[in-house]
């Protein structure tokens, strides 16, 4: 399923936004992503979890060239081994890139135009990018992808308002896949769905990924969803990745204190389960003025003086990596000091 090739390679990426204007001096800077390095293996279902303000959406958007790169670089390799350097693409490359990397949105109610038929919604990317030569060819492509997403010909004639949340999300997925991309960012794609429908969409995404050999970056705040669908999970906190591991390892033995707290905070289905939640004090600090040293030290129950000053680097083995001073792990070789995931 997963080969050794890397689909998206992120090197020391920072995404910063200047907020407001300042008459004197520099305007305040919001660091949404601060120095992230990450490799997303080709053909993987890669999970990115974190709470609001952790920078997971910005990181996902950056890999789609939809967020400004302030520092570092991102390269994308498509299924035909063409390499795109996201910071330096000309218009032709940009166009090709857009076809090969796509986004599925969170809210299927807001993402679809109420004035277009389902056929036109799915066909629009093909028409805008001029990927087909005739209307017949467009229709053919639309029908093919719609069938994969379990939409029939009758559905294609209708307008989005006639569909339920789950069906709408299948329309969004068909629209994202119609240009035959090799890389998909799914940003909270099941968060707006009811529980009984959510499992259906997750199963669909997994089977599409397998059948079409796609690489997925699956962004979610829901750890149990990520645990069930992804083959590698990265945990983000305040613009940094704090831990990367396959879900089995991550959930059985989380090493970073933040991951531990996050996992223990999930309400158990067992009513007699005595809450063992590691209570974190306060809330995620502002990314405009992030804490020095380890970003998590203000809420960490184990923080030491060193954590307040020195920023921890990623350590561990090829599978399980963590950025914490308190975890006793070997330092990775310098070239991969931050992290390179090969699952």
């Amino acid at each position: 399923m997963t080969d050794k090739k890397v689909a998206v390679s992120i090197k020391d990426l920072s995404v910063e936004f200047s907020i407001g204007k300042s008459m004197f001096g520099k305007p305040p800077i919001l660091t949404a992503v601060g120095g992230v390095s990450l490799d997303i293996p080709r053909g993987s279902f890669f999970g990115l979890v974190g709470e609001s303000g952790s920078g997971k959406t910005t990181l996902g958007r950056a890999t789609l060239h939809a967020a400004p790169i302030s520092k570092g670089n991102i390269t994308f390799t498509d299924s035909e081994d063409r390499v795109f350097d996201l910071a330096e693409m000309d218009r032709k490359e940009e166009k090709d890139f857009r076809r090969r990397a796509q986004l599925i949105f969170q809210d299927p109610y807001a993402a679809l135009s109420p004035r277009m038929t389902v056929r036109d919604i799915i066909a629009e990317p093909l028409e805008v990018m001029k990927l087909t030569k005739s209307r017949a060819e467009t229709d053919e492509r639309v029908r093919e992808i719609a069938a994969r997403c379990r939409l029939n010909v009758e559905h294609l004639r209708r307008f989005p308002h006639a569909f339920s949340g789950g069906q709408r999300q299948r329309i969004s997925i068909a629209r994202a896949l119609v240009t035959q991309p090799s890389y998909i960012v799914a940003d909270e794609s099941v968060a707006a769905l009811d529980v009984s429908i959510q499992a259906d969409i997750l199963n669909l995404l997994k089977s599409l990924q397998r059948d079409m050999g796609l690489t997925f970056l699956f962004i979610s705040h829901d750890l149990s969803v990520v645990a069930h669908t992804c083959d590698t999970v990265a945990v983000m906190y305040l613009g940094n990745i704090v831990e990367v591991a396959p879900p089995r390892k991550l959930f059985a033995a989380p090493r970073h204190p933040y991951t531990q707290a996050l996992l223990s905070a999930i309400p158990s289905l067992d009513p007699d389960h005595q809450s063992t939640a590691i209570k974190l004090k306060g809330e995620i600090p502002s990314p405009v003025n992030p804490p020095a040293g380890c970003k998590f030290h203000t809420r960490c129950p184990h923080a030491t003086d060193r954590c307040r000053v020195v920023e921890p680097i990623m350590r561990g083995d090829a599978e399980h990596k963590v950025a914490c001073h308190l975890v006793d792990l070997p330092v990775l070789a310098q070239s991969t000091a931050t992290q390179s995931v090969s699952a």
Partner: peptide, 26 residues
């Protein structure tokens, strides 16, 4: 029963996710 089966559970990552078939009627 269907609702409980559809929930992804952390205790058992091998359990398949079983959706409740169909959609909520209008």
């Amino acid at each position: 029963q269907g609702l409980l089966n559809a929930l992804p559970k952390l205790e058992n990552l091998d359990a398949p996710l079983t959706p409740v078939p169909g959609d909520i009627p209008s």
